[in-house]
């Protein structure tokens, strides 16, 4: 039963990883931008939620109502004012600029909030649990986290394949020059993609802050988990990203079950194995 429990916990944890990864996957898919600052933006969202929760006395879940639009606005502004200028034939400038952003965010947070670990307090829901079987108890929070991840992926999937905005995303992803000749405003569409990405980052940041303590330096670790989930699942496939998150979560849970020190290592090993055997991930988008 311990093992069953570990696997289920791993699956639920995978939801959080999918939340880390979804925005990363979206941005790469639309504009081939690898956002090195993604993890730090997740941490930034957690700190924004912390500030809102403490100054307004709000539950972090309610704070989401403010965090999501703030992050989305930040994403749009960041894309229009900074990142659009870095995009072109060369893939290096966006990497360098987002790496720089990562450093700026980390150090900015250190100055503002110090290096002390912080945590978002969501109240009794954090310790609430459901007994599924005599020896199997699941936390309500991880279940909620997983359900939100599924809902976010389903929502993004809908936007991508059923809405006018999604058609614009796919068109500009396919051929930027032709899309512009069809009247598409690339700078604006990229801005909206980043806004959507950072809206998801806002959700991820709040769940991260509720689940574990955080400090300004943990962003890069979240970035790696996000990358691993995207690549295990296959680039450009949102449901694949969820599957990638789950596989990573289960691998970590099983690793931790064998030896507590092996949690992160087991995730990396599974990632490397997938990369070695199927470099395009387990569920790559079907290309023409």
């Amino acid at each position: 039963m311990e093992w069953v429990n570990a696997v289920i916990q791993g699956i639920l944890l995978g939801g959080l990883y999918a939340l880390f990864a979804a925005g990363l996957s979206l941005i790469f898919g639309v504009m081939r931008l690898v956002n090195i600052a993604h993890g730090d933006l997740i941490v930034l969202a957690a700190y924004i939620a912390l500030t809102i929760a403490t100054t307004l006395g709000l539950n972090p879940f309610l704070a989401l109502l403010i965090v999501i639009p703030v992050m989305a606005g930040l994403g749009y502004g960041l894309q229009r004012m900074v990142l659009n200028q870095t995009l072109g034939d060369d893939i290096l400038p966006p990497l360098l600029v987002t790496f720089g952003l990562s450093i700026i965010i980390q150090n900015g947070l250190l100055v503002l909030y110090t290096a002390d670990p912080q945590k978002l307090s969501a109240g009794p829901i954090e310790v609430a649990s459901l007994t599924i079987a005599p020896n199997l108890t699941l936390g309500v929070l991880p279940i909620l986290m997983f359900a939100v991840a599924v809902a976010v992926i389903a929502g993004l999937q809908w936007v991508f394949y059923r809405s006018a905005l999604g058609r614009a995303f796919r068109a500009v992803s396919d051929n930027q020059d032709v899309a512009q000749l069809m009247g598409l405003n690339k700078a604006h569409i990229f801005g909206l993609a980043m806004a959507l990405s950072l809206a998801v980052v806002g959700i991820a940041g709040v769940f991260l802050g509720i689940r574990t303590s955080f400090d300004p330096t943990i962003g890069s670790g979240r970035l790696i988990f996000g990358f691993e989930a995207v690549i295990i699942g296959g680039l450009g496939n949102l449901w694949g990203t969820l599957a990638g998150g789950v596989i990573l979560g289960v691998a970590q849970a099983i690793g931790a079950q064998i030896n507590p020190g092996w949690q992160v290592l087991a995730g990396h090993i599974v990632f490397l194995v997938v990369l070695a055997i199927r470099p395009r991930g387990l569920f790559p988008r079907i290309e023409q």
């Binding site: 006018a164 614009a168 068109a171 899309a179 069809m182 598409l184």
Partner: peptide, 9 residues
Amino acid sequence: LVAATQGGG
């Protein structure tokens, strides 16, 4: 639809 939405307004 992309053309009608983006270019055609």
